[in-house]
Amino acid sequence: MAGENIVSIRNLSKIYLQGEINVTALHNISLDIQSGEFLTLMGPSGSGKSTLLHIIAGIDRPTGGECRVQSVDVTRLNESELADWRNQNVGFVFQTFNLIPVLTAYENVELPLLLTRLGRNQRRHQVNTALELVGLSERAHHLPRQLSGGQEQRVAIARALVTFPSLLVADEPTGNLDSQSAHDVLGLLQTLSRSGKTVIMVTHDPKAAAFGSRTIHLEKGELSN
């Protein structure tokens, strides 16, 4: 798969209605992302980088244009198809981790697998593999509040990986972490990318962007380079 386009965006635009004013978040974006790439999206606040990430990940819809991920035009899927598609193809890593506080690390990672038809043993195997990959096997039965920020984010990465998605999207994953934890998390994302996973990350931080294989800048909803 390496080298093939996993994401193909053509003439993508997004206009928000804020009160009575139209605000253009994305304007005529065209972009290809290759399989196994670690793409970082940079730009000032309001430049549209998160909006672009959300559309690629299928949690937001564009006003116009086309967004194909693995040849599927996600803009044409209905709500239910999109939910299934996200479960099977996209792993999410958020800035604020967004773990469910009443579930242990193991249960948080297992959550996306509840939507699959996997048996308990298969689920256990996949969860343990994902937790091992992020180096948190020994913390499997800890609640989020018993983990450090860096550990929480690694659990979130394990949750994103557990369904073996082809695409990993991360929205400022190091925004709430200290420098050491941020370094660990970015290193982990880089390793995943090198092992063939496509990673798209939004960041403000040039140091974080340096971990990526390619950086794209957005400004006022348009690609600036």
């Binding site: 709500e79 939910a83 996200r86 967004n98």
Partner: peptide, 11 residues
């Protein structure tokens, strides 16, 4: 977050 992970409205 559950929606993002693939849980549907009916779930």
């Amino acid at each position: 977050v559950l929606k993002a992970l693939g849980f549907r409205r009916r779930e």
